[in-house]
């Protein structure tokens, strides 16, 4: 499935440090179309920094990031914005705009990416479509504060989907949710993957999530891709550092 094509996302030798703290120390990653990869690591291991570099929210110190054949660091702001329409980003705390209703939240990304949706006259149609796929059509005119944590996460996912991205980056999709809601979200992620045929890069320390969602797991330890493989391989690893995750 993913052998001959060029990777849709490619990170080579990524380095990033904050003062004396070297967070990323030569990280490498390849993501192929239709693939779901989980990156696991401890808090503060630089997972969030890594995906923020992917969408240009942070600038790496060195290394190359190519998304769909384009080198991020060389893009001008306009091209970067165009590229961003193909990369969905689900933030850790949902990051819904508090001052807007669910509908306005979902319409927000459309405001600046009109060229991609020039043929769509009525944004409501699109909003309803993505809300339906996360099962929250009834919440369209509510404020984010009126929603539960799980619902917020689902709306955030809907907001990510509305741009029909080719890649979705999930930053801790299940953090702060109870186990049952977490399961619901994981289910939803799988459904979305099938329905929208996206590739996804998932950052998590939730082993259950990693097991269900991913085809491949990368362990990010000490700022490098420490170990790669599917769930079974990693679980049976003898490495002490790896074992710590699967206790």
């Amino acid at each position: 499935m993913h052998n001959i094509q060029a990777p849709i996302l490619e990170i080579k030798d990524l380095k990033k440090s904050f003062g004396a703290n070297h967070v990323l120390n030569g990280f490498n990653l390849e993501l192929f179309e239709g693939e779901n990869v989980v990156i696991m690591g401890r808090s503060g291991s630089g997972k969030s920094v890594m995906i923020k570099c992917l969408v240009g929210l942070m600038e790496p110190d060195s290394g190359s990031i190519r998304v769909m054949g384009k080198e991020i660091s060389t893009l001008n702001p306009e091209d970067l914005n165009t590229l961003r329409t193909d990369i969905g980003f689900l933030f850790q705390g949902s990051a819904l705009y508090d001052s807007m209703t669910v509908r306005e939240n979902l319409e927000f990304p459309l405001r600046r990416h009109k060229q991609k949706f020039a043929q769509i006259k009525d944004p409501t149609e699109l909003v309803l479509e993505v809300l339906e796929s996360v099962g929250l059509v009834h919440a369209i005119d509510l404020m984010p504060a009126e929603l539960s944590g799980g619902m917020q996460r689902r709306v955030a996912l809907a907001r990510t989907l509305i741009l029909k991205p080719k890649i979705i980056l999930y930053d801790e999709p299940t953090s702060g949710l109870d186990p049952i809601t977490s399961k619901e979200i994981i289910e939803l992620m799988r459904r979305v993957q099938r329905q929208y045929k996206t590739s996804s890069l998932i950052i998590t320390h939730d082993v259950d999530c990693a097991r269900v969602v991913s085809e491949r797991i990368i362990l990010l330890i000490d700022g490098i891709n420490y170990l790669e493989g599917n769930y079974e391989t990693l679980k049976n690893s003898d490495d002490e550092k790896v074992k710590a995750f699967f206790k």
């Binding site: 923020k52 969408v55 929210l57 990369i87 933030f91 990051a95 819904l96 705009y97 927000f108």
Partner: peptide
């Protein structure tokens, strides 16, 4: 991260 989200959504 709403400010980041805004930037990501163009």
């Amino acid at each position: 991260e709403q400010i980041d989200a805004m930037e990501v959504s163009g």
